[in-house]
């Protein structure tokens, strides 16, 4: 799995490429924690390169969302989710916990 982060004026974009499983989820948590620890809580995750996500990855997402939403200071939104990944998120009841955008640019405009 590869992760890259880009800081915009009003939000941060995190792009994940590859598999998010129990082996790689800690790496995703680390990248999100680095942004939140810096006091930035408006985060877009670009899912277009994600091939697979397990419950270990979903745990990282829900924990990040809880941290970002606290005190109304921000939120995690998801963009460009492939069909299989969307089906898994939906089965887990995650599609109601996150704003979901078809394009990154729309997500940037949301913040």
């Amino acid at each position: 799995m590869e992760i890259s982060s880009t800081q915009f004026k009003h939000c941060d974009l995190v792009k994940i490429v590859g598999r998010v499983d129990s082996s790689t989820a800690p790496q995703m948590a680390e990248a999100l924690n680095a942004i939140m620890d810096a006091g930035r809580y408006k985060i877009i995750i670009d899912f277009s390169g994600v091939e697979f996500i397990s419950s270990a990855g979903l745990r990282v997402l829900v924990n990040a969302q809880k941290t970002c939403r606290r005190y109304n200071r921000g939120e995690v939104v998801l963009a460009k989710i492939p069909q299989n990944i969307y089906a898994a998120l939906d089965l887990a009841g995650f599609t109601t916990l996150f704003q979901i955008f078809d394009e990154v640019i729309t997500a940037v405009g949301y913040f």
Binding site: S55, R59, V62, Q65, K66, R69, A92
Partner: peptide
Amino acid sequence: DPQLDVTLDERQAHGLGLFF
């Protein structure tokens, strides 16, 4: 079984594996 229809704050991070 995980509770899927609860608010974010109530949502537990564990228990999804067996459910899946």
